[in-house]
Design a binder for these strands. Sequence first.
DNA 1: GATTAATCGAGACGGTACGTCGCGTCTTAGT
DNA 2: ACTAAGACGCGACGTACCGTCTCGATTAATC
Lengths: 190, 190, 190, 190
Amino acid sequence: MTERTRPLGRPRSEDARLAVLRAVDDMLVEEGYAAMTMKGIAERAGVGRQTVYRWWSSKAEILLEASAADAARELTVRSGADAESEVTAFLVALTTFLTRSDAGLAYRALLGEAQHDRKVAELLSGTDVLGDAARAVIGSARAHGALAAEPDTDALVAELVGPLVYRILAEGRTAERTELQRMAARFLAR
Amino acid sequence: MTERTRPLGRPRSEDARLAVLRAVDDMLVEEGYAAMTMKGIAERAGVGRQTVYRWWSSKAEILLEASAADAARELTVRSGADAESEVTAFLVALTTFLTRSDAGLAYRALLGEAQHDRKVAELLSGTDVLGDAARAVIGSARAHGALAAEPDTDALVAELVGPLVYRILAEGRTAERTELQRMAARFLAR
Amino acid sequence: MTERTRPLGRPRSEDARLAVLRAVDDMLVEEGYAAMTMKGIAERAGVGRQTVYRWWSSKAEILLEASAADAARELTVRSGADAESEVTAFLVALTTFLTRSDAGLAYRALLGEAQHDRKVAELLSGTDVLGDAARAVIGSARAHGALAAEPDTDALVAELVGPLVYRILAEGRTAERTELQRMAARFLAR
Amino acid sequence: MTERTRPLGRPRSEDARLAVLRAVDDMLVEEGYAAMTMKGIAERAGVGRQTVYRWWSSKAEILLEASAADAARELTVRSGADAESEVTAFLVALTTFLTRSDAGLAYRALLGEAQHDRKVAELLSGTDVLGDAARAVIGSARAHGALAAEPDTDALVAELVGPLVYRILAEGRTAERTELQRMAARFLAR
DNA sequence: GATTAATCGAGACGGTACGTCGCGTCTTAGT
DNA sequence: ACTAAGACGCGACGTACCGTCTCGATTAATC
């Protein structure tokens, strides 16, 4: 009988876990990533600091857990009539995500932190929300008969997502719907 | 007599300024952006802390001044025989810059910080090293007769630079020369 | 049948009790009173923390229980030929107790804690190891015909014990045997 | 020219020093030694924590500095008509000091802490308020022609001070004036 | 034999002080 | 007016211990 026995001692409090995730979510929007501190999170969540440190090693880790599911959901696009409308819908969703969504704010903060913190970079390398969403759209486009010429999906992901991400994250600009439509058309025209 | 008279008192010490810039350069490589502190910079430079605060308001500002010139130089590409070789050379330079250069490390740190720090974002919006370099290459390509179909230079910049930047910064990968060549070819094939 | 019935439920574990007392004894010597913590005691004794808190309310209480018997034993003096040799023997025992014995170390720690902790002061007021031992010696001296002039035993206790205790606890000095002999002689010369 | 030059940098703030000493004085009386924390002291004094740690290494050290002068003053006895009245006055002062004075409260806390903290013990060994005061009284008694028989001043100090200190600190009792008079008489009767 | 009740070890819980570090400001003397 | 030095008030860091709480498991007495 390999019955998995419950670990000894008082079990982890689900209440505390949710309170922390919720606090991080709220604080990111209200105060921003830089102003968020482990101490502040614990106090806001009504939780001991040790409890936070026991289960997460950094605010980045909490933020990732708090926003990953939302991010994936917000980047999922309903299947459409044709490849171009689907790709356009994805680019619209991506723009909204990066410029208006709370989860997108978290993603930007984490991606930013990853540029000068090895730990965060490794943490992020475990998940690839943008890439996963992009791959889904590319797969759907292929099912519609598009993109037959290019077999390298990774390259396609970068070409689909890269220009828009660069525009928003590095140039600080955004994009109109018509621009996104043109971008989608160009992407499929290969 | 509108000659602007020199301000009173002891003039700013060029020695101190250079010592600070040098210290920031070295510390970024040796210790990383996060471990770099204003206090540490001052001590390393053998300079009073007030002197640092008097001339720069944050480590991001110092870092920008310390690395901007290097960045521009490293991203400048010699004119080549044809558009494709020039674009390829630029992508190679960009890859080296982002993955191996000290100035590139500074750029990544600053771009990262800009994602969760409004001040840094504004600071960076004043300069656009990647964009400027890309525009130069695009102009040269046009002089070679390429890219006639697309008049929107900003869109071209994002399409040239975005995929590679995304690949390196968000996916943490790099790119081989052959891959960069294909990327250049695809970019010009419109 | 007024036989007091055993309380319901699992009875107190004698093993646990002894393990805690033993742990406190050892830790006092090895790490000192200040470094001793309730958490540490429980771990050292291999006992749950709740078990410790269930039976004792502070480390002072445990320490008192762990050392009281030893202290009384160490301060008991064999009856001797005359009053002076008995008193001297007591002063020697007291010196050894305060400067070398583990139980004496516990006594000093408790007496010290009592100076700034009301609870510990009350705890200690219940027992008077030094006083009891001194009273026994004084009684014996009286039986030998000494100290007839002074009927106030409490005053005698303080005069017998006080100077030596002060010397050791407040001045941090100790006392040679010849000094103790002189002290005993002076004490009896009244 | 051995002109002693002032140390570099901003000089120590006398305001901060006094605020800390004052805070410790007040807190000892209001909250007690055990409840006093370095954090609390800093906050009460309106001073940064680092500033406290910069100049004192423990609350015991601050307390000593804050109370030493008061203690010495309170234990100083005006010269009287004869030795007995002087010694009695000293014992009264000592009783008041140990049972009612703020400085005495500090002395008891420090002496207590010294029993289980080596650092505090060493700290206290540098000063000997009780001993110094006792020595002064004994000197004065000798000037009055008393105590000629006993040349060992240290022993006299212990015999003068020890019984009363023991009575108050270890037995938690106090002493009436008549009792102190008898004690003084006995002390001088040798 | 099953139930009940109090114990046991283990360990997570909300708190809070620890001593350190960096922040950005200030106050010196010296250039 | 500038410089280096360094103390200032402030507050977050990650750790340790506080005393309490919730687990499953154990151990007697009672039903």
